[in-house]
């Protein structure tokens, strides 16, 4: 009886397509032989074929709009900041003002950037808003916990920034008085 059940279970587990959740859809602009995998089309003049450029990073790691894509979106995640912050504000600033990393300035006005975006509130003096490190850590990690409709990217849940990088960003935010 036990053996039978065990056998059945294994059969079921075996029946689950092993890589189904991780398999890349077939209709991505993706070329495994190129440095960053993700490519984009360049309509070179007077040609009937496309040329390809490398995107600056591999975007295929995250869910796409392909109908074949069975990889789930990362669910909102509540996190606790463990121990003291230990963040490097200087590095946090670099991340916040780097279009390819935090890219916070796309939506927030930060000191020293007259062009700052207006998608979110200005963060010129967010360090004097009285927020705890733990609150700010959660907002950058995944703001959907506080506001399910937010369009601020979930940097932690989506693995865009590491835990230490988020600590650095929080240290930078707290330094803005």
């Amino acid at each position: 009886m036990r053996k039978q059940l065990l056998g059945l279970c294994l059969a079921l587990v075996g029946a689950t397509p092993a890589m189904a959740n991780d398999a890349l859809p077939s209709n991505l602009l993706y070329d495994a032989s190129r440095p960053n995998k993700t490519i984009w089309p360049l309509p070179a003049k007077n040609m009937g074929e496309l040329k390809w450029n490398d995107h600056r990073q591999d975007l295929s790691r995250w869910p796409t709009l392909s109908y074949e894509d069975k990889r789930p979106t990362a669910k909102p995640r509540k996190v606790e900041l463990q121990g003291p912050l230990n963040g490097d504000a200087e590095n946090g600033k670099k991340i916040a003002m780097n279009t390819q990393r935090g890219n916070c300035w796309a939506c927030h006005v930060l000191p020293g950037d007259p062009q700052g975006g207006t998608g979110g509130p200005p963060l010129m003096n967010v360090g004097s808003w009285g927020y705890t490190d733990a609150h700010l850590y959660q907002q950058v990690f995944d703001r959907r916990v506080a506001n399910p409709d937010t369009f601020m990217p979930p940097y932690g849940s989506n693995g865009v920034l590491t835990e230490q990088e988020i600590r650095d960003v929080v240290a930078y935010l707290q330094s803005l008085k």
């Binding site: 209709n27 602009l29 089309p41 309509p43 070179a44 003049k45 975007l59 796409t64």
Partner: peptide
């Protein structure tokens, strides 16, 4: 360059950190 609509979609996708799809895809 000269751009078709689907190539524009691919540009908006990658600008927004989303993996672009093939030109002419059903999506």
């Amino acid at each position: 360059e000269l751009q078709s609509l689907h190539v524009r979609f691919a540009e908006c996708n990658r600008n927004a950190g989303v993996q672009p799809l093939k030109i002419g895809s059903q999506e």
